[in-house]
Design a protein around this nucleic acid. Structure first.
Lengths: 196, 196
DNA sequence: TGATCCATGTAAGCCGTTACATGATTGG
DNA sequence: CCAATCATGTAACGGCTTACATGGATCA
């Protein structure tokens, strides 16, 4: 029988567990950094239940490690069926990537917004992009792979991310000023020192 | 008193109504095409209630047009307060753009996936990107703006989109093959004609 | 001493989608 | 004649976030 489709968070858990065993806490952390940021960023409220469901359906196993002092941790490990389920799931057509940009909405309203607002939005965006690119570099530097092929694939995905984020950043660096010029307040370069 | 933050769909409605009056049906359509695709794509189930709430809070007005044959349409128009609320909302820091890519997850698992799957994913992605870029061109060509500034801002946002999507597409065109080479099945260019 | 890290989990709620219900008109 | 377009809306459901509950250890 064909497996029913897995929820995004479930897929994330299996993907992270594919190479190493992890606790829910660790999965959450890893979902924010490195290569998994591009998928979903999940919170505890979705990860823990997902892990419990996975364990019940036999796609992962649990081992409870009692620790002195610290709360005991539940270490999850993927099973053969889990690996199969993930591969099966990833073999489905991935569907379109999703890009949601409030910044782009703001930018198209630049003529109706104060200059300061537009400037701030662009600066924030530039800073965010630079940070994300740095995070990719860092993730690549410290990533450990199971095999050479895996490592290559990881590098590929990282290069993809770097490339595309770089394009965003370049555009802002090159054309940011022209958007600011469209903002309320006009083309003039000097700020009229408006009171707050 | 400070206005409570508006939900994304609400912002979308106000943004679309900013220049023209529209029905819920038309708003839905416009949310899919042109410049609003980058924000949210909302379904009737969220648009109609949002519009009703907006009307109740006085940010838009409704006018019911009874039509012969067709069901009567409710035409919404933004009010001065609505405009102010939108501007106020857009003046808040926009927060980070969101990029969610299942494709990137698939790509990082390329060594564990059949060659065909990886090829198909890349082709699908390329086709999707080309389509989106074409949609931007089309939207720019037929867009009507209230003023010159508005038109410039719209063009700016379109150029941003074109630029970034173009970067994705270029990367796939240039490096797609190297990912395929990492897939299960090896580096060899000829397919061994495996049975389905 | 107070924040942060480790570590798990639940409950309520939000925001949105999908599917349903209805129905005339126009175009292929 | 069938599909798509126009046109509005509701109800159920889903999936994820936020906030809550708990608590020792470590670091500044």
């Amino acid at each position: 029988m064909p497996r029913e489709p897995l929820s995004p968070v479930t897929v994330l858990c299996l993907a992270i567990l594919f190479n190493d065993e992890r606790t829910g806490y660790e999965i959450r952390k890893q979902s924010l950094e490195g290569r998994h940021r591009w998928f979903v960023d999940a919170s505890y409220g979705s990860i823990y239940p997902a892990l419990a469901r996975l364990a019940q359906s036999g796609l992962v196993t649990v081992r409870e490690e009692v620790q002195s002092g610290r709360p005991s941790r539940k270490v999850y490990a993927i099973t053969t069926e889990g690996r199969a389920a993930l591969i099966e799931e990833l073999s489905e057509p991935p569907g379109p990537d999703i890009f949601r940009s409030r910044f782009l909405l703001v930018s198209s309203f630049a003529p109706h917004l104060p200059r300061r607002t537009v400037e701030a939005a662009i600066e924030e965006r530039k800073a965010g992009l630079a940070e994300e690119i740095a995070a990719i570099e860092a993730a690549v530097a410290e990533s450990e792979c199971a095999g050479e092929r895996d490592c290559d694939a990881l590098s590929w995905a990282a290069a993809y991310g770097r490339n595309c984020l770089g394009a965003h950043l370049d555009f802002l660096k090159t054309h940011g000023d022209s958007l600011i010029a469209m903002a309320e307040g006009g083309t003039d370069a000097s700020l009229p020192k408006a009171a707050e």
